[in-house]
C-alpha cells in the first residue's frame, strides 16, 4: 500500500509544513515515508509544493508524476495539478482562493473554504491544517489522532503559541468533511 500526496500553494501558505507534518505523522504511525519540496530561487511569495509518499514498503521514487491525492491551496495549484491526479484520486481544493476546477469523473473532489474555516477556528494562516483535517476525514491515510499528536510534537518552537489554534483548525477541517460524509450516507 503506497499513497502519494502533493500539497501545493503560494509560498507562505504553510504548504511545506503541512507536508512535513504528514510525514512526521506517517513515521509515528511506523510507515515508510519521504517528503520532498520544490526548491527554487524564490524566497517568498512564489509558488511552492511538496510531495509526500507514505508506504508500507521502502519508498523508491520520492516523486509522483500522478499523485493519488492533491491538496491545492490556491488557484494556480488547482489548475496545474487537477489534470495530473492519478486514476481514482482525490482533490482537496481551498475554495477560498480557488475556483472548483473541472474534474474528471474518476477524481473525487473535496471543496473546502479553508481560509474561512481557519479564521473561524482562530487564525487565517492555518488553512493548510484545515485542508489536512479535511483530507483525513475523507481518506484516512493516517489516523487523525496521530496527526494531531504530530502537531504537538513537531510544531516549530516559534509557532508554539499557535498550537491550540492549529489543533482547532485541524479539527474544524476534519469536522467539515466528517459531517458531509455523514449527510451523504
Amino acid at each position: 500500500m503506497q499513497t502519494s500526496i502533493v500539497i501545493a500553494g503560494f509560498g507562505g501558505q504553510g504548504v511545506l509544513f503541512a507536508g512535513q507534518l504528514l510525514a512526521h505523522a506517517a513515521l509515528d504511525a511506523r510507515k515508510h515515508v519521504t517528503w520532498i519540496p520544490s526548491y527554487g530561487p524564490e524566497m517568498r511569495g512564489g509558488t511552492a509544493h511538496c510531495t509526500v509518499i507514505i508506504s508500507d514498503r521502502p519508498v523508491g521514487s520520492p516523486l509522483a508524476r500522478h499523485p493519488e491525492i492533491v491538496l491545492a491551496m490556491n488557484q494556480p495549484s488547482a489548475v496545474k495539478y487537477a489534470p495530473l491526479i492519478g486514476l481514482g484520486g482525490l482533490l482537496v481544493v481551498n475554495t477560498s482562493l480557488a475556483e472548483i476546477p473541472a474534474t474528471r469523473p474518476d477524481v473525487r473532489l473535496i471543496p473546502v473554504a479553508a481560509n474561512e474555516v481557519a479564521e473561524a477556528a482562530g487564525d487565517l494562516r492555518l488553512a493548510n491544517v484545515v485542508l489536512l483535517g479535511a483530507l483525513l476525514a475523507t481518506r484516512p491515510i493516517l489516523p487523525a489522532p496521530v496527526v494531531e499528536k504530530a502537531l504537538e510534537r513537531y510544531l516549530p518552537e516559534r509557532h508554539r503559541h499557535l498550537l491550540d489554534a492549529n489543533r482547532a483548525a485541524f479539527r474544524a477541517g476534519y469536522a467539515s468533511q466528517d459531517e458531509q460524509t455523514r449527510l451523504a450516507a
Partner: peptide
C-alpha cells in the same frame, strides 16, 4: 544530488 539533499526521510 539535489533530491537527496532536499528530501526528508526517516
Amino acid at each position: 544530488d539535489g533530491i537527496l539533499g532536499q528530501m526528508m526521510e526517516p
